[in-house]
Amino acid sequence: MGFGPYFLLASLEGLVTAAVLTLTALGLSLVFGVMRVVNVAHGEFFMLGAVLAWAISTAFAGHPSIGFAAALLVSPLVVGGVALLAERLVLRRLNYDPEATIVATIGLLYIVQQLALTFYGPDARPVQAPFNIRVTLPWFGYSGYKLAVIAAAIVLVIATWLVLTRTKVGLVMRATQYDRETAQAFGIPVDRVYAGVFALGAMLAAIAAVLVVPIQQAHYLMGRDPLLLSFIVVIIGGLGSLRGTVVAAVLIGLSDGIISVFFSPTLAKMLATLLVALVLVFRPQGLFGAATR
C-alpha cells in the first residue's frame, strides 16, 4: 500500500479512536468536572453498559438493529439507576470527600466486576452492529459502522453542549461546578444536582459503551482502559471544558494513529503517551482550562 492511502487509513483510525475517546470521556468530564470526585468505577459503568447491551440485544430476535435500538434505550437507564443508587447510598454519606470517594469507588468497581463475572461470565461476546456496510475504497475496505460512530460522537457532543449552555439544567450544573458554596447560597439544591450529574455521567458512559460494543465486544474487564483514557482526555482538555475534551480526544486519537505509521507499534504507543504527557507538563491547566485550578 502506498504512503498516501496508508496515511489516510491511519487518520481514519485515529478519528475513530478520537470518537470513542470523546464518547467515553463525556460522562467523566461531567462527573469529574462538576463533582470533583475521582470516580474509579466510571469504567465499570461503561462495562456494565456494554454487558447489558449484549444481554438486551440477544434477547431480541430479528434484525440486529432492533436489539441494538432497545439496548441503546434500556442499557443507559439501568446503568443510570445503579449509579444513582450508589450515589445515594455511599457517595453522599461520604460527603463527596475526595479521598474517601476513591476507596468507595474502588469498592464499587470490585462489586460491579464480580457481578458481571458471576452473571455474564468471563467470555468476550460480540454485539452485532445495527447495520453491516463495508465502505470500499480503492486501496482498502472500511467499516461503515465505524464511520457512524464518528457521527454519533459528534451528535452526542453537540447535544451535551446544548444541554450545558442552553438549558436551565445546564446552568445549574455549571453554577455548581464553578462554586459549590455560592450555588448553594443561591438556592441550588447542590445535593440533588450531584445525584443527577453522577447518574447522567454513568448514563453517558453506558451510551458510549452501547455504541462502541459492536466494534469492541463486551467483556467484564473492559472498563479499565476507557477509565484511564477518559481521565487523560478530560485533564488534557482542561477540567470542565467540553471543547477541550473533544480537542484532546482528537489530538490523542490522531497522534496514536499517525505515530504508529512511523514506528514499531509498542514504541509508537510509548511515544504517543509521552507526547501527550508532555503537553500537560508544559500546559498544566490543560489545553482549554483556566490558568488556576
Binding site: 496508508y6 483510525e13 485515529g14
Partner: peptide, 20 residues
C-alpha cells in the same frame, strides 16, 4: 513481523504493514 501492543483495542491501522 507485526507485533501488536497488548493495550491495543483496534488493529486496522496495522494492516497496511502486511506486504501485498
Amino acid at each position: 513481523q507485526i507485533p501488536i501492543p497488548p493495550t491495543e483495542t483496534s488493529f486496522t491501522r496495522y494492516f497496511p504493514q502486511i506486504p501485498a
